[in-house]
């Protein structure tokens, strides 16, 4: 479990070197998810609230409506944080989609006086897992890749999936799994080699 004072220290170091803040945001969101960490939420709020307000002003051209958007988006982030998982993407992408959805429903209400709240059906947010897409028969390569991936040892499979399919960075994944960066890199290398062997076997 994350200690918020450690997170705060990490922030100071990061802001000095001006590196990507995204991994921090992910951690704050996960701290909110795991133990309703108010300090972590305050960090998220400080980061996102002004951005959401700016987005809302552009969208609605009214201060009060822009503040509604901040209020509703951040409330949803607080209440639904448990539904976030870093495998599905970055915290900022998650917050952006929540804001975009709520904003869409607000616009429907303002412009067409409709309260049909379509957004959650248009852009599914809270799903457990993506439904399996219908692959076409001619995607043989894809089938082989999926089979190859399934055949990997679980730890290698986990790393290959996270890096290539979920597009996490090595650093994010190392933090998420709580293992050193080097371990991620070696699992990835081993996994990819095995996958390559398997594909070549099939194509010869």
């Amino acid at each position: 479990m994350y200690q918020t004072n450690q997170l705060a220290d990490a922030t100071i170091n990061k802001s000095e070197s001006a590196v990507d803040v995204q991994p921090d945001l992910n951690q704050y969101l996960m701290a909110v998810a795991s133990h309703q960490d108010k300090a972590a939420f305050a960090k998220l709020f400080a980061f996102f609230a002004p951005k959401i307000k700016a987005f809302g002003l552009k969208q609605f051209r009214q201060e009060a409506l822009a503040m509604d958007l901040v209020q509703e988006t951040m409330s949803l982030v607080w209440r639904k944080a448990q539904l976030y998982s870093p495998e599905k993407g970055k915290a900022s992408t998650w917050v952006f989609t929540i804001m975009r959805n709520y904003s869409f429903d607000m616009l429907r209400k303002i412009q067409h006086n409709k309260e049909d709240n379509l957004s959650d059906d248009l852009w599914p947010l809270y799903e457990e897992a993506e439904p399996e897409p219908d692959y076409e028969d001619d995607h043989l390569m894809r089938e082989q890749l999926i089979q190859g991936l399934e055949a990997l040892p679980p730890k290698q499979k986990e790393v290959v999936e996270a890096i290539y399919l979920k597009e996490m960075t090595h650093q994010e994944l190392a933090e998420h799994l709580g293992v050193p960066l080097g371990t991620i890199k070696s699992r990835l290398r081993l996994g990819l080699e095995k996958l390559k062997e398997k594909m070549e076997l099939h194509n010869d």
Binding site: F41, A42, F45, V70, K80, Q82, L83, Y126, E127
Partner: peptide, 25 residues
């Protein structure tokens, strides 16, 4: 600050039970 008031009010709310995860779909 208006934001600070809002922040305080939000974190007073209970969070949703994890059960909602499956109910949503």
């Amino acid at each position: 600050d208006e934001f600070a008031t809002m922040l305080a009010a939000i974190t007073e709310q209970p969070t949703d039970a994890p059960a909602l995860k499956s109910a949503a779909v």
